[in-house]
Write a protein that binds this DNA or RNA. Structure first.
Lengths: 118, 118
DNA sequence: CAACTTCATCGTTTATCTACGATATAAGTG
DNA sequence: CACTTATATCGTAGATAAACGATGAAGTTG
């Protein structure tokens, strides 16, 4: 019999340290508009919102069973993860045969600041 | 000679009253995911972010010179306005030959709540 | 090394988005 | 009523997005 590896890792495994330093970038202006649009676009799909929530809730690295949580094919989930990663909202770290995902708190904070600033 | 009409209207013209009642809908769950994704998608384009900001800043109805503020054709701006309107983020009210736009504070608050709840 | 696991990437199909010019609509103006 | 103005809608072309199965790459296990 084979025991499944735990699919949630402690913060130390790959999650970025809780970097609390303030973001000095402006929350409005042309650049901020682009930035907000990019982040919003990345969140513009229910599956990606769900993924982000999963990772926020765990507040730790989560290895690939994200696929099991969504009613989508593995390749589709992988694509959604890529979108979130490209937007900088999550981070993926290779851990042996799997990949551990966690949120990028900096970017999430930035998103909240941009939306809050509306 | 013809004087241009002022293109910003007072709140009373069409802006919804500052309805401060709390939104009781949950900020997570499948429905909230869909809702957030829809709102985020609507914001997922720089032009639409810019439009929203214009309306927020004015905090009043703004008649169509939104077109003049953007480097886009009138028909394109009209489409973006429609996206924002469909998402419930803005409202457009016919005012004689023009249309006055203003933000829908309820939806904007809702968006902030959803994002803040991440 | 062969088999298996985990995940990313490729190739494809279908759908949606973005932008524009052209045209329609609707309300004021002479 | 003809004419102008302000917007919306239509039609269309090109770009992106979303989904899937199939395949590839990298690590683990026997």
């Amino acid at each position: 019999m084979k025991l499944a590896k735990p699919s949630v890792r402690t913060k130390s495994a790959c999650c970025p340290p809780a970097n609390e330093e303030a973001d000095l970038r402006p929350i409005e202006g042309e650049l901020a508009d682009e930035e907000l649009a990019t982040l919003a676009k990345a969140l513009g799909h229910p599956a990606r919102v769900q993924i982000l929530r999963l990772l926020v809730r765990k507040d730790a690295c989560m290895c690939g069973d994200i696929v099991d949580e969504l009613p989508l094919a593995q390749s589709t989930v992988s694509q959604h993860l890529k979108v979130l990663k490209t937007a900088g909202l999550i981070r993926g770290e290779i851990d042996g045969p799997r990949v551990c995902y966690c949120i990028e708190p900096r970017t999430l904070r930035r998103l909240k600041a941009l939306i809050g600033g509306l």
